[in-house]
């Protein structure tokens, strides 16, 4: 495990617009750090620069304080799990995992033991002699992980490693990867555009937009206190509403609410759909609304309600049936109302 530090990394391709714009961040030893962002935000480029597969135009990368910016990829000890796994089809499972170890000079019985131990970590020890193309997607993904873990890298890099798996397998693998990294106290940098993956696995995460960090922090900080509208909506569904803001209050068409954290740049308020509740008319702070539509999802139903010309999404667990046009009463805890800069 190593500490990773990126300082003012810049990268442009031929088109001119910078893909990474003076980006800096630090990852603590043993931390699982997520880079989250939409397609084209520069997250995979950043990972490739870390691995040495791409050269940054400027900036500095250090592992444990040692400058590795100009080291070739093979000298970095930053093992990567590729999005499409990049398993070598001409080598079997054992040889794929043994590849990096052989380069490190591990031989004979030690090699065999370490390869099998790595495969055991991902529950594939009995598949060592199988050919790569004969494995399922999930198995290939695990071999790719075992291959990276086997070399005991200073930093583990994961480039959307679960994006080609089905939903069930993805869930299983999320907990597997978290477990393995925590057990080994493995520093890991994980790139994804899947917010659920980031929120459920990360120790800390950074949301990237246009080659810059939009916000960085723990999953809870980012989800519950997003710094801006982009982060707020990228991390989950959220209701924005406009109003007149003055003296720590927002005056909307359906009521007046205290808004903490206001500053001169605050333009609107926001609230997550699960923070709004269906309540009885006599509940303090309740306001009337009309049900517009509902999407039933089994455990959770997403309701769209309207009041004063403003539409809200309300997520309700174990929801009773409601009719469109029906009048309902809604309320929310004022603490969850977020002040948003534009």
């Amino acid at each position: 495990m190593a500490a990773v530090k990126l300082e003012k990394i810049c990268k442009s391709f031929t088109s001119g617009r910078p893909v990474l714009d003076s980006l800096s961040l630090e990852v603590a030893p043993g931390e699982i750090f997520f880079l989250l962002g939409p397609s084209g935000c520069g997250k995979s480029t950043l990972l490739r620069i870390l691995a040495g597969l791409l050269e940054a135009d400027s900036g500095k990368i250090s592992f444990d304080g040692k400058d590795i910016t100009s080291l070739p990829p093979e000298k970095r000890q930053a093992a990567m799990v590729f999005q499409n796994y990049a398993l070598w089809p001409h080598l079997n499972v054992f040889e794929n995992v043994a590849f990096g170890l052989r380069i490190l000079g591990v031989k004979g019985e030690t090699l065999r033991r370490e390869v099998l131990a790595a495969l055991d970590t991902v529950h594939l020890a009995d598949m060592a002699s199988r050919r790569v193309p004969s494995l399922s997607g999930g198995q290939q993904q695990r071999v790719a992980l075992a291959r990276a873990l086997a070399v005991k890298p200073a930093v583990l890099l994961l480039d959307e490693p679960l994006s080609n798996l089905d939903a069930r397998l993805r869930d299983t693998m999320r907990s597997e990867i978290s477990r393995i990294c925590r057990e080994r106290q493995q520093t890991a940098i994980y790139v994804t555009h899947d917010r659920q993956e980031a929120l459920s696995m990360a120790d800390r995460m950074a949301v990237l937009k246009d080659g810059q960090i939009s916000q960085m922090g723990t999953p809870r900080e980012l989800y519950e206190r997003p710094a801006n509208c982009f982060c707020a909506s990228f991390l989950g569904d959220i209701n924005f509403f406009d109003g007149e803001i003055s003296d720590g209050e927002i005056i909307t068409s359906f009521g007046k609410f205290p808004l903490s954290g206001c500053n001169g740049k605050t333009r609107r308020a926001a609230i997550r759909p699960e923070r709004i509740r269906f309540v009885s008319p006599d509940t303090p702070g309740a306001f009337a609304a009309t049900v517009v539509s509902g999407i039933y999802g089994g455990d959770l139903t997403q309701w769209i309600c309207e009041t004063g010309g403003v539409k809200f999404q309300v997520n309700e667990m174990a929801s009773p049936a409601r009719k469109c046009g029906e009048t309902v009463y809604l309320a929310f805890d004022r603490d969850y109302l977020l002040a948003m800069d534009e």
Partner: peptide, 17 residues
Amino acid sequence: PEELEFAARNFGAGPVR
């Protein structure tokens, strides 16, 4: 896929290897 060669570099193999 060039990725397969990137992977080899990433796992410590120099360009010739």
